Simulated assay, not measured.
Amino acid sequence: MAPITVDSKQSGTARILGSASAAIAELGVFHPVDTISKRLMSNQSKVTSLSQFNSVIFRNSAEKPIVTRFFSLFPGLGYAAGYKILQRVYKYGGQPVANDFLTKNFKDSFEGVFGARTGKAMMSATAGSLIGIGEIILLPLDVLKIKRQTNPEAFRGRGFLRIIMDEGLGLYRGWGWTAARNAPGSFSLFGGSAFAKEYVLGLEDYSKATWSQNIVASIFGASASLIVSAPLDVIKTRIQNRNFENPEGGMTILKNMIKNEGLTSFFKGLTPKLLTTGPKLVFSFALAQTLIPAFDKMIR
């Protein structure tokens, strides 16, 4: 049995620069798309007409000129910038660190259980899952971003520092559901990409992938991630978009969704998410995977 081939390692600086650059580019292109996705997931009524769809997407700006409607899709940009840059640096820059750790300490175990090629991909997926769970540390910024996008009335004139002081640990509400979503979601993202590089593209060193190869691998990973995490993502979003003084637990939301909306409600927004968030995730993931080695070459 052939041993697992170890990918080339990049410096920590290159990982930070590559991930941050990908996050900034993603934010500039896809923030309106993210707002649309969050508003669709938060909507609890059936959409039966174009005018109703416009009301869900554009809220109070539904009847206003198209330019006004477009700019209404940029709420919470400041929170989004802070969250997105930190999240992408942590996730895209941190997963290779976790993968290096697993390769150094558990390579033989993964190789023995899954075989040489699959073991390498499984290490990448497992590293992604571990990083995904730890991502809950950034939850307050995600909560504030989602509330700005879907429920701006929750702020009632309060600024960032005042909300932090008033709400405290309440901003971590839904952390368990977030971790439960992130673990399989990140496992599928990095695992799907790794399996594509291993079995579809036949790469021995994943870090040597070209831009087009990273795009193909990212499509596999992003699609798997969004489908697997969709039900928990809907619950997480509904926990986070409620008013601060009127929270609702995940189990209550789950029961009400089954009772009032049916099982298909757990996949609300999945199609637009695949069409909108999918390209966003593919774009940022592929860009980070391409930029990190590029920055590493520049630094060295």
Rank of each mutant, 00 (worst) to 15 (best):
K147L: 11
G192E: 08
F285M: 09
N151W: 02
T290Y: 13
A20W: 00
S21F: 06
A125F: 08
I239F: 01
N256M: 10
G128E: 05
R59G: 07
Q52L: 05
F110P: 00
F101H: 09
K197R: 13
V234N: 11
F53S: 14
G28D: 15
T178F: 11
K297Q: 11
L189A: 09
G28H: 15
R162I: 06
I292P: 01
D34I: 08
Q10Y: 14
F283C: 04
L17V: 06
L232A: 10
D100M: 05
L171E: 10
N214D: 14
L275V: 13
T126H: 01
I299R: 06
T5E: 09
S45Q: 15
E198N: 08
T103H: 10
I136K: 07
E248L: 13
R39D: 10
P247R: 03
P279T: 04
F71A: 02
Y206W: 14
G119N: 01
V143E: 10
K236W: 05
F267K: 09
W175A: 14
V97F: 09
S265K: 12
T150E: 05
G249D: 15
T13N: 13
M41V: 11
K91C: 07
G157C: 00
L189F: 12
G94K: 02
H31D: 01
M257A: 14
A125L: 07
F244I: 09
F101Y: 15
K297V: 02
F187E: 02
K107Y: 00
I258R: 15
R158Q: 11
T5H: 10
P247Y: 04
Q10W: 11
L144P: 01
G18M: 04
P152K: 02
E167C: 03
G119E: 03
E153I: 03
I36M: 14
A180S: 07
M123D: 00
K120W: 04
S207N: 14
N43A: 13
Q10P: 11
L139K: 02
Q213D: 08
S193D: 09
Q240V: 01
I253K: 01
R242A: 13
G249P: 03
E111A: 12
K104W: 12
Y199H: 06
L281R: 11
G262H: 04
I146C: 01
V67S: 14
R158F: 02
A80I: 00
S212K: 12
T210D: 13
